[in-house]
Design a protein around this nucleic acid. Structure first.
Length: 205
DNA sequence: CGAGTTTGACCAGCGC
DNA sequence: GCGCTGGTCAAACTCG
């Protein structure tokens, strides 16, 4: 499954002659494959999507893709807990200039053969690390935007290699590069949209 | 030649 | 204090 978040360079639906399907339709993205996971971010999900955070059930509706497209990723989330999870240290132990001191973070779990999701931003890889209890390495990316300290971590799900875990950290201080030539389209998925192919949401491959 | 990637080293936090 | 682990740096390397 390929995922597109608006980069016209790689998004086949960007062509003006082609009407893109609604986001998260079976041809565009498998909704069931697009989840915020882990306990740590469960609350984050509920706040960012407006869905109820009942128990541990994964949310199933109302995903605001603009959150991703604009880099507005769960702002206000984890700002009170980032002293542990969002270590932004240098070797000297001092916060690096240009880094954001408020580092909201949200994790997405996507079923994809590709580890890199095209979210419209340009990322530069700055590290790769093997992770304990996982056969798959974790890759570290920084936004290539000038003075933008947004980071992204990408790793394969250790329990199911068909899933990719993508963690975004920080808020972009610039627009997505694709915004300059992408027609603004509401990318908010809601219950009002008909389920085009409900069966496809549970089995995409 | 510039931009991006790779990869080993370094550092800090944490648990024991 | 020591070892393990995660995160970052930066030189070397690759690619267009």
């Amino acid at each position: 499954m390929d995922m597109y978040f608006g980069n016209p360079n790689s998004n086949p639906y960007h062509n003006n002659n082609i009407s893109p399907p609604p986001p998260f339709s079976s041809d565009f993205i498998n909704l069931s494959d697009y989840l915020v996971l882990d306990d740590e971010h469960q609350e984050c999900w509920s706040q960012s999507t407006g869905t109820e955070s009942s128990d541990n059930k994964a949310p199933s509706t109302t995903i605001d893709i603009n959150v991703i497209n604009q880099g507005l990723i769960c702002d206000e989330i984890e700002t009170s807990t980032n002293n542990n999870n969002n270590m932004m240290k240098r070797k000297s132990g001092v916060m690096k200039e240009n880094t954001v001191d408020v580092s909201p973070r949200v994790t997405f779990r996507t079923r994809s053969q590709l580890e890199i999701m095209d979210d419209g931003y340009k990322w530069r890889k700055y590290g790769k690390k093997s992770v304990k209890n996982s056969p798959y390495p974790r890759n570290y990316y920084k936004c290539s935007g000038e003075r933008c300290g947004v980071k992204k971590r990408v790793e394969r799900d250790r329990e199911d290699s068909s899933y990719v875990l993508t963690s975004y950290e920080g808020v972009h201080n610039h627009e997505s590069p694709c915004n300059s030539y992408c027609t603004p389209v509401s990318l908010v998925y809601s219950n009002e949209w008909p389920q085009q192919n409900p069966s496809a949401t549970s089995s995409s491959n």
